[in-house]
């Protein structure tokens, strides 16, 4: 990535990196989800996220050069623009559902915003992504509604609290406030106040990104420049 003033492709890369890294985390459930149905569901969501990442990278590559794979795999970890929320390893179901729901809620706000972009290709792509993300939100909503009994509610509440500062780091300014309003409206029992710390906001990375990147790129790095 060249060092230059923020451009319209920066926001695109941020969204693409979020989708790639979250898709990667979703794939960690493959084969070990709580039920076969959820295994299939998370696999399907992971495929959508990776597919969205690819489409966003392709659009970004028109401005930055390179191709989608190079953007996805050939940057150093510090160059990724994903938010810390998606980097977190959350291989516990309540944590996964909390992150899933918070991310999908924030992502809906971001995609709505993108559909109004004056960059026609981005607006068109955002409308396409929006159609698929609607199903992710239905899935996330279903789980939030389902985990309402005593033990489950306590687990979900704790998981939401843990993820909340990171969730506030997905979006900035007016979009963040719109996200906060939606969370408060949907979960009246949850305290949606506060601000993200520097370590929760986009631009910071958690210690969990490096091992993820090591694993994600290990085959590709093993024979540099090869076709796979």
């Amino acid at each position: 990535m060249s060092a230059r003033a923020p451009s319209r492709s920066d926001a695109l890369l941020a969204a693409a990196d979020d989708e790639l890294i979250l898709g990667w985390r979703d794939s960690e459930w493959t084969g070990i989800a709580p039920s076969l149905e959820e295994d299939v569901a998370f696999s399907s969501i992971a495929q959508n996220e990776i597919g969205h990442a690819r489409a966003l990278y392709e659009l970004a590559a028109r401005e930055t050069g390179g191709d989608a794979d190079a953007l996805a795999f050939d940057r150093e970890p510090a160059e990724y623009r994903c938010c810390p929320l998606v980097e977190l390893r959350r291989l516990e179901w309540a944590d996964t559902i909390a992150r899933h729901w918070l991310y999908e809620t924030a992502d809906a706000v971001r995609i709505e915003h993108m559909t109004a972009s004056d960059w026609p290709e981005l607006a068109g792509l955002a409308r396409k992504i929006q159609r698929e993300e609607a199903y992710h939100r239905l899935h996330a909503d279903m789980w939030v509604d389902r985990l309402t009994g005593g033990e489950e509610r306590a687990r979900l509440a704790q998981a939401l609290q843990g993820a909340w500062p990171y969730a506030l780091g997905v979006l900035d300014g007016a979009l963040r406030e719109r996200f906060r309003e939606r969370v408060a409206a949907r979960l009246p029992w949850f305290d949606a106040g506060g601000d993200p710390g520097a370590e929760h906001a986009r631009g910071a990375h958690t210690v969990e990104l490096r091992p993820l990147w090591d694993e994600m790129t290990m085959v590709r790095r093993s024979v540099p420049g090869a076709q796979w």
């Binding site: 696999s43 990776i50 989608a68």
Partner: peptide
């Protein structure tokens, strides 16, 4: 190997296969 797939296309294909 879904996590290690070397291209986006391979990652998608392997995820779909395992699904």
């Amino acid at each position: 190997w879904i996590l290690r797939a070397p291209t986006l296309q391979r990652k998608l294909a392997l995820t779909a296969k395992v699904q």
